[in-house]
Design a protein around this nucleic acid. Structure first.
Length: 391
RNA sequence: GCGGUAGUGGUGUAGCCUGGCAGCACAGAGGACUGUGGCUCCUCCAGCCCGGAUUCAAAUUCCGGCUACCGCC
């Protein structure tokens, strides 16, 4: 399933090819989220234009609406949404963290309330596998229990044991050869449990291993310490996937720890609220300084937004809450993420990954690139003045 | 010239009758967002037209100005 091409010598970063029934995806890659078989404000066609390699949809939500019968009739999710590249499906375990969905768990599965019609259902491991097989996604996730940050060790252990029991049942229920099946390692923020869960998933011999329940509000040093600990026990030859991770600096850091792919709403949420990703760091479009700035978001960027529209125009669209603005901003950030992953892969094979990742991390440690330049300038001026005084 | 109405952060306003920590929205400055039920959230900055009187206490009541708008000559 995963063909490893090149391993970095300084870090654990590597490139590879993930083979799926809808073609290959070069790793490391980033999947935009299309929860209900629809990327927000973009069309599946836009994603092809952006050269998105793979996306992830939500099986739980799709089973609520339109229902798997409709998607099945459409010839599966690819035909339904007219996107013929790898599509992952998520199981709904994360929706435990969303109060409006979650109604509790039993030994048998998770109780959810449909947000569409209010009906309550018990999602069992067998059901979520059946749903994902009917959706005909390229990779399915086992049902997992995603414990919130701050949960006690006893409760976290219980959630982990449920995740493990459900993973076994998912594997047993899974019969679709053309679909990859991923186990989700959990364990909250207890190192011992994290490692235990990773070992369990490794021994289950899934097609790939997902790391779940990370970046859900904990301090980042905790996230990284967990990833680091857990990756030591991860099988070398299997693809590793951190669920829900999507900030540029976190991605390159995780790649250096050996993670192969990611998905997240982070770039979309940032774009929605006016934070644009650039090669020099974040750019907050709502600032007044962009009111009459007719340059593109990022002069290096070749995306549709950057080649057609100015910061001034996008600033205006943001301030006036125009729907077009949402689309243009999201288009850019998704495009940026894809190019970030392209460059990540090139740099690994080019032996320049360490340098590249440092550049991204330092760019994203800064705030708005324009403003930090301004403050750098005033800082420099202060330094010059001080030196002049000293003679 | 006379009469009426109104002056509150940068902008638009609430509070005035019935005196008691000046509220809201936008703008401005920061920050957040990470396996989407949701068209954001948090923090900060910033104000009673001027002068006097009454009062323990005045954006508020009273007197005199100034300014704006409306009406009349």
């Amino acid at each position: 399933m995963l063909e490893i091409k090149y391993s970095d010598r300084k870090t654990k970063a590597r490139t590879g090819i993930l083979h799926t029934s809808h073609g290959d995806a070069l790793t490391p890659f980033f999947m935009p989220v299309a929860t209900k078989a629809a990327p927000r404000y973009l069309s599946p066609h836009d994603l092809k234009e952006i050269k998105v390699q793979a996306i992830i949809a939500n099986a739980l939500l799709l089973s609520f609406a339109p229902g798997t019968d409709v998607v099945k009739k459409a010839g599966g999710i690819h035909g339904f949404m007219n996107f013929n590249r790898p599509i992952f499906t998520d199981c709904g375990g994360f929706q435990i963290l969303r109060q409006s969905f979650f109604r509790g768990t039993t030994e048998d599965g998770i109780k959810f309330r449909s947000p569409f019609d209010g009906r309550n259902i018990l999602m069992t491991p067998e059901m979520i596998i059946k749903i994902q097989q009917e959706l005909s996604s390229d990779a399915a996730m086992c049902l997992d229990y995603c414990p919130p940050y701050g949960m006690s060790k006893e409760e976290t252990e219980d959630s982990m044991l449920k995740t493990h029991a459900w993973a076994e049942r998912c594997k047993k229920a899974h019969t679709k050869r053309s679909q990859l099946l991923f186990g989700i390692a959990q364990g909250g923020f207890y190192r011992k449990l994290r490692i235990e869960s990773m070992k369990f998933m490794r021994d289950m011999d899934f097609d790939g291993i997902s790391l779940g329940g990370l970046f859900i509000g904990e301090p980042k040093r905790d996230s990284y310490s967990m990833i680091k600990s857990v990756m030591r026990y991860a099988p070398e030859d299997k693809p590793k996937y951190i669920m829900g991770l999507g900030s540029p600096e976190d991605i390159v850091k995780s790649v250096s720890m050996g993670v192969d792919f990611f998905d997240s709403i982070f770039p979309v949420e940032n774009a929605r609220h006016g934070t644009m990703f650039t090669w020099h760091g974040k750019l907050k479009l709502d600032s007044k300084i962009y009111r009459d700035d007719f340059s593109p978001i990022d002069s290096e960027c070749k995306c549709f937004t950057c080649t057609h529209y100015s910061r001034a125009y996008l600033h205006h669209l943001l301030k006036t809450q125009e729907q077009l603005g949402f689309r243009l901003r999201i288009y850019h950030n998704i495009y940026f993420m894809q190019r970030l992953m392209d460059k990540t892969r090139y740099s690994i094979e080019d032996k320049t990954f360490s340098k590249f990742s440092k550049k991204i991390i330092s760019a994203y440690a800064k705030k708005d690139p324009e403003k930090s330049t301004e403050s750098n300038v005033s800082e420099r001026i202060t330094v010059i003045k001080r030196k002049e005084k000293q003679g």
